[in-house]
Simulated assay, not measured.
Amino acid sequence: MPADIADPLLHVLRIRGRATPESLAAALDSTPERVGAALLILESTGLAENTGKPRLGWKITPDGTASAEKRMTQISPSAQATVADRYETFRTLNDELKQLCANWQSRAETQGPADFVAPLSVVDKEVQQLLAEITPGAPHFAEYSARFTRALDQFASGSDSHLTGVLVDSYHNIWFECHECFYITLGRSRHAEEAP
């Protein structure tokens, strides 16, 4: 049923602001048709709306933002503490991933995904462990694990775009969204944290 993907769909919309059914389907490993049906459910409850512009797709409403953020922030104190603790590990991994992406973008012409799969797999193993520890108490993090796995598998299979590409559910795009999820869950902001 489309209703069973409504919560994760609203979560992605909260992180992105707006998205097309096709990009949402890629993020949730679903079909545009199933996502479209779930979007209509969200629209009927005032949580999302169609922009009327196919290239922009759908956007979250103020009520949708409040609903998604409630799911992200109203977790138990122990779960909040676990997220805060594991976030420090995530920040260290963030530096490693940024360096890996920089190395990939400045790679030699003779280099391809096969040359970068091993270091990406090391980062992935650590972030998967971190997510496994967070998700029981903060289930809104659940989709990131599978998304990272799909992106890594695509990259390992030779898809250049699945590490840093912007038009696919690339590892870097998913990482950026997961980072934003940490910010919202912990009541922090990217601007404040990245300020000099």
Rank of each mutant, 00 (worst) to 15 (best):
A27C: 00
H140N: 03
I41S: 04
F148Y: 13
K70A: 14
D63H: 04
G17A: 09
K70C: 03
P2Q: 12
L47D: 13
L93N: 01
Q99M: 04
P8R: 15
P2W: 06
G64D: 13
L42T: 05
L130C: 03
G52M: 07
Q105A: 07
I15N: 04
T185V: 08
D63Y: 00
A114K: 11
A3G: 01
Q80C: 03
E22Y: 04
E143W: 04
K59M: 11
A151C: 01
D153V: 04
G137A: 10
E88D: 07
A27I: 04
S121I: 06
Q99I: 11
Q129N: 11
R150G: 00
A27M: 04
G57W: 05
A79D: 09
L152W: 02
L131V: 08
I41R: 12
M1G: 10
Q80S: 10
L186N: 05
H191F: 07
R190T: 01
W58E: 09
W58F: 06
A102H: 08
R71H: 11
A142M: 09
A6Y: 10
E193L: 14
F148C: 04
I75H: 05
V168D: 02
H172M: 14
S67F: 01
D115M: 03
G17L: 10
L13W: 05
S106G: 00
T31K: 15
V117N: 07
P196A: 15
